[in-house]
Design a binder for these strands. Sequence first.
DNA 1: TTGTACGCGTTATCAT
DNA 2: ATGATAACGCGTACAA
Lengths: 365, 365
Amino acid sequence: MATIRDVARAAGVSIATVSRVYNNQDLVNADTAERILKIAAELDYWPNPTAQSLTTRRTRTFGVLLPDLFGEFYSEVIRGIDLAARRGGYQILLSSSHSNPEDVLMASRAMLGRIDGVIMMAPDETSIDTVARVRDRVPVVLLNPRTPVEGCHSVAVDNFHGAKAAVSHLIGLGHRDVAMITGPEGNGDAEDRLRGFREALADEGLDPDAALVIPGDFRETTGFGAGEVLLGRRPRPTAVFAANDSTAIGLMAALRVAGCRVPEDIAVVGFDNVTIAGYLNPALTTVHVDACGLGGRAVELMMAALEAGAQDLPRHQVIQAVLKVRQSCGAQKTPALKRHSADGPAGDDVDIRGETPLRSGGDPS
Amino acid sequence: MATIRDVARAAGVSIATVSRVYNNQDLVNADTAERILKIAAELDYWPNPTAQSLTTRRTRTFGVLLPDLFGEFYSEVIRGIDLAARRGGYQILLSSSHSNPEDVLMASRAMLGRIDGVIMMAPDETSIDTVARVRDRVPVVLLNPRTPVEGCHSVAVDNFHGAKAAVSHLIGLGHRDVAMITGPEGNGDAEDRLRGFREALADEGLDPDAALVIPGDFRETTGFGAGEVLLGRRPRPTAVFAANDSTAIGLMAALRVAGCRVPEDIAVVGFDNVTIAGYLNPALTTVHVDACGLGGRAVELMMAALEAGAQDLPRHQVIQAVLKVRQSCGAQKTPALKRHSADGPAGDDVDIRGETPLRSGGDPS
DNA sequence: TTGTACGCGTTATCAT
DNA sequence: ATGATAACGCGTACAA
């Protein structure tokens, strides 16, 4: 409750001097500074950030707008943002679960004035217009934008090539009838993964239009349902590319219930590389996405933008999605062709869990 | 960039009138109000929340302090907080990954002045002192506090009884040699679950001190390592209670690698009921924790506290943790005793995924 | 090195 | 119903 005035009075100085102690420490006599600091501590004085922001026009806070918070992906993104933000001395104002453009606009509005910038993953139908409105006021960093917005920075996961690598790998193993379970309709990430799927097929001379594509929504339960659909299909695909790991997990459960073995009867590949992927039975082959790094990069771009001020020009970064081969895709079905080497470093190990086990060296992945 | 003054000038009224339009709509002439609103829209004026807070002394924001963001539990807590906060018209200032009391104090300090209250899950060694410092300024709601702090509200998951129910269930199935893999040392939740484990054993006439207790840290990799330790033990326990689902998942992977069947050779029970628990092979018996609800409750307490103001007296809520029986614990090993019914409604179905599958009715749990 | 005084954008109090 | 003006707590020219 103590204000700068209380401290000034108690120390017998002006508020300007107290203020200087906190801002330009060197502009004030060392002794006085020390005395003031001591008195401030006694009074449990702490500068009021709200008042500071009013004059400095900086909040050292940025807003984070997410469409959802469900699942490991989003939580990792936030973790990355939080970590990087704190390192840079910034706070984060979080708001999620925005399913439509109005939500996004309202949430941004509520934030405007308390933040120096916004990091947002816009729900897919969000109009460029809405985003532009926000961008006119503060720097905006877009996460996985489906379409770039002029004047906005962006960080995106390379869903397309990640998906393509996964499907190419399946084809390289000899599969000719590969199905896909998609993500939610209208979701940009999901669409890019579908595009990667189709292009991988086309590149191998297979017909994308002939491939079985089952609609999904990124959730386990849908993967499970898709599994049932898949099993009724004749001829039955020998491999499935799931739009994300949750879907793959649901799918594998359905296959297991039906007595269908993975990867012997059907190969499965997911996307995301969630923490438990390596602990599943069979361990899940998937495409690793560094969600935490995605958030961290966004923060770095934001801080750079804040630093640059007016003469700041938009930067766009892409985060690679790397295939992580485990057991669920099985091994070669036919003798190796030149295809095999084409996978390149895709199969390389991405160390997900940076720590060694507490008591033992075991790790199944 | 337009301020209240710009709008006032353009509308030919005083700033007081403009202000009233946004606060006491009814105190101003309907026509003028409409005119002002129109001009405000043209100027893209939006009240500056920072300035508002300075005079009103309310920010409509509360701080959320979490020790970590890793894993589904925390992300669900945040989701619950976010949902409830937005419903109440509040914003949330998030800060996590605080491993020690100094971190917590610093983070709170940085928040003070921008928030109306703090919801925090203090890392375990955090001194009551630190929390009290914050509480002296703003209402505090503690999440799963290991010890209650005077003057603070709290919401806690009943880890103790949840754990006890899980272990009692195992004993009821005929297991006499039950091991446990604990959570991180010093973690309150983990300790309560250990206490529940021990009391369940004692209640059944088994010796808690004779039971195998392997240290863990809530992560898959440790569960995996613990599995290896467990398998070397003679006599080998016939059941294991893992302090959380991640640990159980790591454990099951280790058992699988070693050719040990679950539940036939070793029964496994986890804690948390993460989304994928029902999709594992075998489906994981675990204790359901409504993390999202935990966060929501905290917000409700906070809003009530804010409402009550000075004459606000601390409330403490407990959230039940309910046993969710699936396959990993197996069925009865010996003929049913009276124990069986003692599980009561614990085995009742807690519907985790509130939605029905998109295309098909399947669900493995 | 320190003090004075203004401004940040708003709400609230008192007039009118 | 509306206007003038003093807070709110702080940073910062400018002056001393």
